[in-house]
Amino acid sequence: MPRLQARARLGPGEAVSDPERRGFLATAAAALAGVVIAPGIRLIEIAGARAPEEAASARVRWGMLIDTAKCASGCTECVKACNEENGLHGAGRPRTDAQWIRKIDLKDPRTGRQHSAPVMCQHCAEPPCVDVCPTGASFKRADGIVLVDKHTCIGCRYCVMACPYKARSFIHENLSEQKPAVPRGKGTVEGCTLCVHKVDRGDGTTACAQACKAAGHEAIVFGDLNDPQSAVSRRLREIPSIHLRADLRLDTGVRYSGI
């Protein structure tokens, strides 16, 4: 009897489970933020843009959807674009050269179905690399981007071992000709930064997503997972997708469909 009463007190919109409720609040917030002053001009752009002096905040969660149905086997445009954007030129030693994106080919031995997908740092909400880092160099930014603060990285490589996605590389050689926007150096660990320098600049995309689109595949969709109107959120609503190694419950920011 008391249970029934409690239920009766809930309003129609409140009788929903937590995640849905959050979804509802996010929609409401986005609707508010998207106040239209003139057609095509919003008071505050909702694509995760923030004022220049404003710190990255948890209102945004950057992430990607990788649609393996659209990813062409043998195509490495995303990897090339990543290397170019971040100045990753290897020393000709494939076993140890830095690799921020790996192109993986998958084959189901029973059915023979083959497909291919890029795998990079999955930008976990619960990143194991952050848990194991002894200096706090491996960290998650408020907006979900998992980074290495190379200023405090001591090169111990615990994070390399802890990452279930093999997403981190260690720099073994002295480097030169680094990109001004992407400092890199010997003795530190690194991995995909979700093109943080581009994101902060307001580009709203990553080098890999751009290259994939330019190649006509559009298998990589980047955007704000917290914004229900973003291209990535819309696509995630339309097609089924999973976290890689969902059993680890890391709540990755990168999701895959068709695997």
Partner: peptide, 12 residues
């Protein structure tokens, strides 16, 4: 050792 000592085309 990490940061570029020369200016680049794209400012950081």
């Amino acid at each position: 050792e990490c940061h570029a000592s020369k200016p680049g085309r794209v400012s950081a």
